[in-house]
Each structure stands twice: as C-alpha cells, then as structure tokens.
C-alpha cells in the first residue's frame, strides 16, 4: 500500500513548517535577548532568571491553584449530573446530553461576557438584592467571579467525559455485583466509581488545561489586577512587547502542562489496570 503511504508526505512538510518551527521559535526567543529580529539574537538565560522572581512564581502558583479549584468544583458538580443522566430513561439521555453540550459550542467570549451584566455591582443579581433591601454583594473582580466563569465554561466537558465512560459501562457487571449481595453504595464505590475513573481523568485534562492558560475569563471577570499566567503572557506579547520574556514564560508553562498531562495519563493507566483487577474479583 505504498501508494497511500505517500499521502502523508505533504502533511509532513506542512507539519514541520507550521508546528515544529513555531515551537523551535518559542525556544529560540526564550533563550535569546532583546530585539525582535531573529537575525540579531544573543544567547541568554536572563528571561528564565527574570521569571524566577517571587512575584511571577506567585502568578504561576495562583494560576495552578485557580485551575485546580475549578477542576475540583467541576468534578463535584459534574459527577452527580453525569451519573443521574446515565441512569435515566434512554430517551431522555440523548436530549439531556444535548442540552448539556449545546453551551460548549457557543463562543466562549459570548458566554463569559454574559456573566458581566449578571455579576457587576449594578448587575442583575445586585439589582434583585437591592429590591429586597440587601446591600450590594461584591462579586465582579473576585476569585469567586473568575472561578465561576471557568466552571461555567468548562463544566460541560467534565460532564460529557464522565457521562461517556458511565454510559459505555457494561451493565452486566453492575447487575452481577447486586446479585452477589452488594448494596447500592458498595456497588458504586467498588465497581462504578473505579470503572468511570478514566472518564474523570480525561475530564480533568479537558478542564485543567484550558483553565490554567486562559486569559479571557480573568480579564473579563477579574479585571486588570487579576493576573494569571495567560494574562502575563498576553501582556508581554500585546502590551509590553517583551517577546523574549513572553516566550520564556510560555515555554515554562508548556513544559509544566506537558508533564502534568504525562502524569495524569500514567495514573489513568494504573487506575484502569486496578479496576480491571477489581473486575476479576
């Protein structure tokens, strides 16, 4: 089938030009100094040195913290929802999953923008609270608003991913568990939960990855003083014009994310193996 094998050749050229070279450019910029001309670069570690200032480390940690909280909230809300949907009548499952996934297809900026007029100091919630004489609640520009925005944007991915793993689960295994005398709780803890773990883990990657790098949600709902790693990168490239430093931050972020993805995948494999071991029992 050599003939068809040739079909990959154009893409290999395309891929090296537009995927590999841009990556190398980021590395090149990260390790070179001032001037945005490729011709006049000078090798340096300064950009990384600059990043290891406590202030920027704090930004990095804050981004990871916010993304972790978002992921946690998504699991806590998403799992029960996915579980309930997977267990309703099949006719309803399709419709409910459709309703859950429609927001995923709507432009993220639009979805985030919608919250501004709800959360702001004179927004819908505060207008309502005022009418029943409760003082204005400060929601805009807080951690709460940013995490809410992230959960709102990324929760459908979590539900979808957990639902998929629950729905394709072999019902016979669960019935067998009941037949062997296990109660609902035991069956859930020993069978359903471990078997749905791959879904949870792929949900975690689907939520954590965009949450840690987004700059739109903090910008819209957190204001200019809410700085996450994505905002820092955007700021360096769009406003400050320090592309070298911006590239260094991006490189650090990309490496951290790649590492955490690699780790989750490993955990994923272990869990699947364990669950299969559990099956044999």
């Amino acid at each position: 089938m050599r003939v068809f094998g040739n079909l990959v050749k154009p893409y290999m050229v395309w891929m090296s030009l537009f995927i590999v070279i841009p990556m190398l450019l980021i590395v090149l910029y990260a390790f070179t100094t001032h001037g945005n001309s490729v011709m006049a670069f000078q090798f340096t570690f300064d950009n990384f040195g600059k990043f290891f200032d406590p202030v920027f480390i704090k930004v990095m940690l804050k981004s990871i913290q916010v993304a972790l909280i978002t992921t946690g909230v998504c699991i806590v809300i998403g799992y029960p929802i996915a579980y309930v949907i997977a267990n309703v009548d099949e006719r309803w499952q399709t419709l409910l999953m459709l309703l859950v996934t429609i927001p995923m297809w709507i432009n993220m900026l639009v979805r985030t923008y919608a919250w501004i007029s709800i959360l702001s100091d004179s927004g819908l919630i505060n207008t309502f609270l005022k009418s029943i004489n409760i003082g204005p609640l400060k929601m805009m520009y807080t951690d709460f608003a940013v995490i809410l925005g992230m959960v709102y944007n990324f929760l459908p991915f979590m539900i979808l991913s957990i639902y998929t793993s629950l729905a394709k689960m072999d019902k016979a295994v669960i019935n067998a568990s009941y037949d062997l005398g296990a109660n609902t709780r035991q069956t859930f803890m020993k069978i359903t939960l471990p078997l749905s773990m791959p879904g949870v883990i792929s949900g975690v990657t689907l939520v954590f990855l965009p949450a840690v790098s987004t700059f739109i949600i903090p910008k819209f709902l957190g204001g200019g003083q809410y700085m996450l790693i994505g905002n820092l990168i955007e700021n360096q490239f769009i406003t400050v014009g320090e592309w070298n430093f911006g590239s260094a931050i991006s490189l650090i972020m990309a490496i951290i994310i790649m590492l955490s993805m690699y780790m989750t995948r490993k955990i994923d494999k272990d869990i699947v193996q364990e669950a299969q071991g559990g099956n044999k029992w």
Binding site: P22, L25, P210, S213, G230, I233, W243, S247, S250, M258
Partner: peptide, 18 residues
C-alpha cells in the same frame, strides 16, 4: 498531538513569531 495538548496561547504565539 502538539497543538492539541499545548495551551492555545502557546500555539498562538508560536505562529505569531513564525
């Protein structure tokens, strides 16, 4: 897999630099 696993902003600046 690179553009899929990488944060969008990294893909974006890579292309911008290119």
């Amino acid at each position: 897999n690179f553009p899929i696993l990488n944060p969008e902003i990294v893909t974006a600046i890579g292309l911008m630099l290119l």
